[in-house]
């Protein structure tokens, strides 16, 4: 329970951190969206009630609240709400049938789109459809479940702060796996406690802050930067040395972006990881290694000579 609290605290902190670094770029559709935000951007909203003929103030459903700061700092910040949502949402009360309206999927816009071709949407889409989430819950589980339509901002391929990326990505998984309310959107099961399920992993808090869930739970391919093929739990990585060794193949996915240039040299991690975290078994300092070998060698050599002389000159 305490660990859960700390993880939640981490999440909260990270949100503050992200909120603070809002870009100062001009906001494209702030005027058009301000109508929606007047209600969906604050805990209470006011509308004119024709029947009783006065203004009525009500509380906004917290799940329908959208943080405008995060909204204008995300991938789709240049979008009007009604680019994705029906035009009829402009009227209030919203028409009851609007909620049945199907939402576009990522591929509807991104398939064959040259501007975002480097993200390999098609590959990701295939990987996702092989994942546990999709195979077990094909229709309810959409890309939007992990990619919050109003706040998802790419980190993995452009944030040079690995720690931030890790926290960001893990919060995506924890948004369900540490929150029963969202989890049960998908599954009637009572949620297994992720903290308990990872009890075999020592220093859980620092592990979850320094490796991503997907490092252990996905099948990594070379085509997509962020692997989306989440496998069943029995295929998850459990062997410590898959990370804790200089030839760790796994961590290459996390550090792929940062490490590409520098890793070639010594075959293991570059300054990016050396600076930010220290992984037993994986971070070996080449120079310290050589130095220690030389010193040990000399000590043994001197001892050997000394012993020989002692025996010979007895």
């Amino acid at each position: 329970m305490k660990k859960l609290l700390i993880i939640n605290l981490l999440c909260a902190l990270s949100f503050i951190a992200f909120a603070q670094e809002t870009s100062k770029e001009e906001v494209v559709h702030s005027k058009e969206n301000s109508n929606c935000f007047s209600c969906h951007g604050s805990p209470t909203y006011t509308y004119y009630n024709d029947v009783v003929e006065r203004d009525i103030t009500k509380r906004m459903n917290p799940y329908f609240l959208i943080d405008s700061v995060l909204y204008y700092d995300q991938n789709h910040k240049s979008f009007e709400c009604i680019d994705c949502h029906a035009y009829e949402f402009k009227t209030f009360p919203h028409d009851n049938t609007l909620r049945m309206e199907p939402m576009p999927s990522c591929l509807d816009c991104h398939e064959g789109d040259d501007a975002t071709a480097m993200y390999n949407f098609e590959v990701i889409n295939d990987e996702f459809h092989e994942s546990v989430h999709s195979t077990k819950h094909s229709d309810e589980f959409t890309c939007w479940m992990c990619h919050n339509p109003h706040s998802y901002k790419i980190n993995a391929s452009n944030n040079s702060n690995i720690r931030e990326t890790i926290i960001y990505d893990n919060n995506i998984c924890l948004s369900c796996h540490a929150d029963i309310n969202k989890y049960q959107l998908i599954s009637g099961n009572t949620k297994p406690n992720v903290i308990d399920k990872h009890d075999w992993l020592p220093n859980q808090i620092s592990h979850f802050a320094s490796v991503r869930c997907i490092e252990c739970h996905t099948h990594v391919s070379d085509e997509a930067l962020v692997a989306h093929h989440i496998q069943t739990k029995d295929k998850a990585v459990k062997k410590c040395v898959e990370c804790h060794s200089s030839n760790a193949t796994l961590m290459t996915s996390l550090y792929r972006f940062q490490a590409q240039e520098n890793r070639r040299k010594y075959g293991f991690f570059n300054a990016a990881i050396l600076e930010d975290s220290y992984m037993i078994g994986a971070n070996r300092n080449l120079y310290l290694n050589i130095l220690s070998a030389i010193i040990f060698g000399s000590v043994f050599f001197v001892i050997l000579i000394h012993t020989l002389l002692r025996i010979l000159l007895k």
Binding site: P202, C240, S245
Partner: peptide, 18 residues
């Protein structure tokens, strides 16, 4: 053993060594 752990050969299993 921890410092030089590796996938191919292990002196002592990692979590045991820890």
């Amino acid at each position: 053993s921890l410092q030089y752990s590796s996938i191919e050969y292990t002196m002592i299993p990692f979590n045991y060594a820890i």
